[in-house]
């Protein structure tokens, strides 16, 4: 019984990891690609980590919960990196299928300066 649950968790996790990366390869513009890895992959790895937690906890060497730490870490950091990537993409004005709201483009003077700076590759 336990083995069935474990196998199911592992397969679901691997499948979601794969689908997340498939989205990265397959979707058409950067902003939609962003969704694949940040969601599906996070859940996939989370599921794998739960499987590992169950596996090592039921081997009779005591509870093993430190996988929880990796899961927690991934769930906290995935949205942060997604947000930064989206912000960088808006800043660089990448091609988007959906119309981009006007206000996001250089409404902040400091960002406008940064845009001019990054037009030429920084030295050093």
């Amino acid at each position: 019984m336990l083995e069935i649950i474990l196998s199911a968790l592992i397969l679901i996790g691997a499948l979601f990891t794969f689908i997340g990366s498939l989205g990265l390869a397959r979707l058409e513009d950067f902003y939609t690609r962003l969704h694949g890895p940040t969601k599906a992959t996070t859940l996939g790895v989370g599921s794998l980590l739960i499987a590992s937690m169950v596996y090592f906890s039921t081997r009779g060497e005591g509870l093993s919960l430190h996988e929880l730490l990796v899961t927690l870490f991934l769930f906290i950091t995935a949205p942060v990196s997604a947000h930064l990537l989206a912000k960088a993409a808006l800043h660089l004005r990448l091609r988007s299928i959906a119309p981009v709201p006007q206000r996001t483009e250089a409404s902040d003077p400091r960002q406008a300066n940064a845009a001019e700076d990054s037009a030429t590759p920084p030295q050093g």
Binding site: T32, L34, R103, T104
Partner: peptide
Amino acid sequence: LANTISLTPGTVSAWLSPDRATLVVHAL
């Protein structure tokens, strides 16, 4: 809120206006 949005229904929070009044969200 931004992290929550990024984790849920096909949405990623993409940009926060400098006056912190609006959050631009990209939905799949």
